[in-house]
Amino acid sequence: MEVKVEKLNYTYKGKKLLRDLSFSISSKHIVGLTGKYKSLVCEILDLTKPYQGEIFFDGEKIEKDNIRKFQQMVALISQEDLFFMDTVEEEMNFIVENYQYTSRDLKKRMLDALKLVGLADSFLHRKLETLSKSERMLIKVACAFLVNPKVILFDESFCYLSHNHKRVVLSLIQKMKERKDKLIVIASNDVNLLYAFTDLLVVLENGECIREDKTSVVFRDFSFLEHHQIELPDLIAFTRLAKEKGVRLSYHKDILDLIKDVYKHV
């Protein structure tokens, strides 16, 4: 699945928020989206907000007469802790109706979605207000996967997840990318999250795309990061400090690899 955005413009209350924004992403990578207005870009990619410019899904341009078809291919997991219904089952039914999704055995599909995020069958009947914030976010993720979308947008959704739940979702994302050609976009300003879990980074600033590059390359481009006031991921910051002292550490994506490397150099 490929999504191309060309010269996207968006004005709100007379102020231009997005200016000729263009980028191109595919399910080859787990895509990170960072910078101001990333949530707005997610809403536009979710095809629920009017925009000026062009969006292409797998080469087909989104127009008024085909937008409904494409809306059903995208799911947005927003950062808001808001739901439409009372229980998990009601919420799932609502989402399914909204997406006009049909399935031979919907109940089984719902339970499968819960299993996907590591939740027991009993969660189906739970009232959403009795769940913890983290569990509610897992339900949002389950609902998104329920309708089998081709594009899944995570808008700062990870901050509500507990450490364990985060790991569950991230390994799920990995599996989805490997097996099912889904385009996953993680919109976040958490540089550690982006560094660890995305391969391609789209960096926004002033409503434009200022960089579209491999995540590991962007986070080692120190002058770029400094110039645009983007924090360094912890693992990179540490190695950089060590290198400045003449220690030949390598850049790692995992803390255990860093430890092994430090061990060799003391």
């Binding site: 507990s162 450490h163 364990n164 550690n192 912890d234 540490f238 803390i255 255990l256 860093l258 430890i259 430090v262 061990y263 003391v266």
Partner: peptide, 19 residues
Amino acid sequence: GLELPFMVDLSHMLSFYEI
């Protein structure tokens, strides 16, 4: 299931290896 802050985690692991 709690995640330690990076520097705390790093400190512990390096202490474990007696570095």
